[in-house]
Design a protein around this nucleic acid. Structure first.
Ligand code: FES
Ligand code: FES
Lengths: 152, 152
DNA sequence: TCAGTATACGACCAATTGTGTCGGGATTAC
DNA sequence: GTAATCCCGACACAATTGGTCGTATACTGA
């Protein structure tokens, strides 16, 4: 539960990989898939999705492939997840604003919606570049990168 | 994606309901299920799970049922979710410490683990009592209840 | 112009997970 | 002893996710 789908995971990995290779004009889906042992065709579909959402730019033909549409710093993990898995809500009742309006006595939705927003905020504060910059192991103890306040 | 299962939702609802009725010594699974239109037998299993994890105390026999094992303030949403859905990891690769060790080049797991911890922290900061205390609508603008720092 | 490389897209199936039901057994109160 | 209640495993069904296939389309370079 509360876990990323593999697709979203693959998407993040692919973007991270692209962010790590800024010199190349484009990388094909197969290139990326091979680098990580990801099913190539599946990754292709994911990349296509992200292209449609404006996160990537694609180019067909020889030496074609995908490239980041924006700076790695300007693409958040939230956007990636949103593009691949669609809008997400932590509460299972918030589906069509239908099923749970039937039980007006249940007020659990409201506080959980705040949690949802908080998580979304955290995800928004993470950029692809953050993922790509892998500090060496050993806890470098760098400063706090983000601060998220949860208001009940 | 990234959503609570219905079971966890039901579990939270049930605990909230129990927290709202502190006067009664115990409420049966059926009582709670009827109050919200939740499948009774399913809820029963969920309550049993939470009992086994020490969140509830149960009592068989007539006028039996369930009661909170601790103060509502002392039970966090995190514990509930953990009890019902098991340990959760946002990263899909962190399953058996197996699949992703094969690709040591992928460093995406690390930063996402921090996100995971952050979310867990948020969930831990929410108690059943927080859910039960439904402020009236209208944004009461009360002070910040929790502050979670995300350190990349 | 033509062959090769690559994206684009839809349909489809397989695997997993989530949701809900059933049935029998054990406890407890009255 | 009977009715209410918890306990628990097995099962069936539904939804989601993961992955494949086939084909169409676009671009490149010789
Ligand atoms: S479960 Fe949807 S509002 Fe309570
Ligand atoms: S996907 Fe698991 S470490 Fe990268």
């Amino acid at each position: 539960m509360l876990k990323l789908t593999k697709k979203a995971d693959y998407g993040l990995i692919a973007l991270k990989y692209l962010a790590e290779h800024p010199e190349t004009p484009a990388l094909s889906a197969k290139d990326i898939a091979d680098a990580y042992g990801i099913p190539a065709q599946l990754l292709a579909k994911i990349l296509q999705l992200m292209t449609k959402k404006g996160l990537l730019r694609s180019h067909a033909g020889m030496n074609g492939g995908y490239a980041l549409a924006r700076e790695a710093r300007e693409i958040s993990a939230y956007e990636v997840i949103l593009a691949i898995d669609g809008p997400f809500f932590i509460t299972s009742c918030t589906k069509g604003a239908k099923s749970c309006e039937l039980t007006p006595s249940c007020t659990i939705k409201e506080p959980l919606a705040r949690v949802n927003d908080t998580i979304a905020g955290v995800l928004k504060s993470i950029s692809i570049q953050d993922l790509a910059e892998h500090e060496q192991p050993g806890m470098p103890a760098n400063g706090a990168a983000g601060l998220v306040s949860l208001r009940l």
